[in-house]
Design a binder for these strands. Sequence first.
DNA 1: TAGTTCCATATGTAAAACCTATAGATCAAG
DNA 2: CTTGATCTATAGGTTTTACATATGGAACTA
Lengths: 288, 288
Amino acid sequence: MELRHIRYFLALAETLNFTVAAKRLNMSQPPLSQQIADLERELSVRLFDRHSRSVALTAAGQVFRRHAEAMLAQAQQAADEVKAIDRGTTGILNVAATSSVLFSGLSTAIAAFKAENQNVEVIIHELSPKEQIERLELHRVDACFLRFAPEEKNFLVTRAWREKVGLIVPPGHRLASRKSVRIASLRDEDFVFYRLPDSAFATHLQSLCVQEGFAPRIIQQVVESFSVVSLVSAGLGIGFVPETVGRNSAAKVKYLDIIGSSPTADVHSLMRNDATALARRFVAFTTH
Amino acid sequence: MELRHIRYFLALAETLNFTVAAKRLNMSQPPLSQQIADLERELSVRLFDRHSRSVALTAAGQVFRRHAEAMLAQAQQAADEVKAIDRGTTGILNVAATSSVLFSGLSTAIAAFKAENQNVEVIIHELSPKEQIERLELHRVDACFLRFAPEEKNFLVTRAWREKVGLIVPPGHRLASRKSVRIASLRDEDFVFYRLPDSAFATHLQSLCVQEGFAPRIIQQVVESFSVVSLVSAGLGIGFVPETVGRNSAAKVKYLDIIGSSPTADVHSLMRNDATALARRFVAFTTH
DNA sequence: TAGTTCCATATGTAAAACCTATAGATCAAG
DNA sequence: CTTGATCTATAGGTTTTACATATGGAACTA
């Protein structure tokens, strides 16, 4: 049985006239008779009663008609849906990000993307950078968003958006009244830092300090920017955080711009080379 | 798109190897590559990623797979169901009958048939003989059951089962103590009769009386045997009824066998010439 | 009875599905 | 780095089959 038989069957079931059905199918009548006969022979069931001057569906034919319509509809839907997937206008998108990146604008970007793409479902995976990369390789997620991307891997890396890094200090700290600060002046401070060597961001910040002539005294290592805020707020030390996190945090900390060599915490997106059109569209959407 | 493409696609989706899939499909590898490529070209979507040494479904391919499986399942189910319909082991059967025929055994026959054919649904239409014939012609019912069948029509007529006709009289009637009676002795009685000339049964009974030398004095005409019982029970007259009706009625009447020329009320089934296998099976089932 | 309509059959043609052979590409092993 | 093995794509020829034209046969109509 082929879909051709189904199409022919339905045309005949609707017209109940071989000649008319053949015309509608842009073919001549004999091959239509042939193909219908072939279909009936394969099923070993008569689908049409051919009488003197009338063609009618048998009981079996009536039942077959319902199935035939369903099959053609399914084929049509399959083609439509597959094309939508290919265009990236429908489907499920697994996005991995750290909580601070979600906070820095990714959440709102996701909301906006979903609003523009009603047929897209976005699943957010809040993961550490290391886990993000692992799951990207395993096809568990389609796109990752993190501050510093590893360069060795065979991924598509894009800088999604720029973001400055600033300093946060607890209330009452000697720098709390300042608006900005140079890194060189932080030589004697206690630092809440990102975990070394996991975090490329941490390595970046550390090397910046070294360029300014000192090794930061790290009294605590954490994974998330929000944890830096928490510990700084509690008075354990000072720390570097992305600007959006430092300025908009609910916790009581003072945010200072860094002047001179200003570090960045630009957000980067990662995709596999075989990324779907949906993933590519989303990454393009978030890039500005 | 043809079902062939679907079958090939699924074989490849399962094996992820052109060579192996082709072997499973009993064909060589090149035409399989061709057909998959044709399918992809028609959809204008890549369904498989062919890499160095691996074949994998794309996101679109994964979605297409679900549709493909549904289509093949639908085709299989269509074939199975159509064959079942053709065998008459499944489907909907519309049966028309008079209430007295239902009472005379058709009800229990329907119950038994349904028990043996779990996939058959039987819809009972309780109709007068005249309406039965009309609906049979209109394809509204598939089989009719009545006592006397018209012979002119181009229907398949079968005698389903035999049934004698007897006489019922009210309690206290002069014949109430008799076990049997001759028609000739009913010359001076008042009769509750079936409607003339609608009922072939009525015509038959009337002519029997005439053969015995008198025209029955008809004081009331009704349609149903049960109505004859009701009126006779009320003392309006005597009447002929099928044996099962006369003997098993809840109303208070006396049933007498008829000796000499004994009339019959044999139940006949009617089908159209284009009757379905299900209708034929049911009629065969009820014939004994 | 003649004409018309409509489906089935017969026969030839064109399309396309398939096969064999082979090229091209990649990976594993020597 | 080279050789062999493995796997898919392409090329060219063959077979199958879907299709078209022509025609036969049955039934309804005028």
